[in-house]
Design a binder for these strands. Structure first.
Lengths: 112, 112
DNA sequence: AGTATCTACAACCATTTGGTTGTAGATTAC
DNA sequence: GTAATCTACAACCAAATGGTTGTAGATACT
């Protein structure tokens, strides 16, 4: 099943940008495993609540995480679909490289 | 074959950071397909030579690309190994999510 | 030798990023 | 009702990012 993600450059930018920070990657890890409120997340890191809140916002903007109101708290939940979209992007690079290797092999076979 | 990517947070940061820019992703695409000199690359984008040079440097710092002296020019070559390391990272997130789904399934089965 | 080309690198600038503190609005607990 | 908790958001700041121009060192061309 191909997901066919027609992603904008800007969306791809946001996905990779969001993953380019250890705290944010950790938030993704946690919330893919178990959903957590923003303040539960904030308790895990050595920075202010507002800083964690901003990291969550960056992840949300990239679609890597969604927030769900639950009383006075917002449960943060990792979005596996976004991860898959990122995987699909990297897979394409692999394919480009494999195509090149294929061409080189063909060239070698030709020479023999 | 597991590649055993013992990557630092900092290295992972650099890989995703490097991929978070459309020009840089395009350079990776091109050079995974065909190696190209810095000036050949620079001719492809609407920005100064120095700007492209900086993008290549960012990619090189992330290990996504290597430079090889060839006379007065530096041939830029995409590094498929780095792409695979990034894939491995994303695969781990998938696994975390699948593990959660597995637990939920087990819970449902238990209830029946 | 002299010129053109390719690259490296410094200096500079505007914008973005990642953090802070502080204030205010909802919701829950007592 | 009052107090505590969770969240949102603004304002601010230092550092990083992404671009520029300019200068200089190697290498290739004629």
């Amino acid at each position: 099943m191909v997901v066919d993600t027609e992603l904008t450059d800007d969306e791809v930018d946001r996905i990779f940008r969001a993953l380019a920070d250890a705290t944010r990657r950790d938030i993704v890890r946690r919330t893919l495993d178990t959903e957590a409120s923003v303040s539960e997340l904030a308790a895990e890191y050595e920075m202010s609540f507002a800083a964690v809140q901003k990291h969550v916002a960056v992840l949300e903007g990239a679609g890597l995480v969604t927030k769900h109101p639950h009383g006075r708290e917002r449960k943060v939940r990792g979005n596996p679909e976004a991860i898959r979209r990122a995987q699909a992007l990297l897979d394409r690079y692999e394919q480009i490289w494999r195509a090149r290797i294929g061409r080189l092999d063909a060239l070698l076979a030709e020479d023999q």
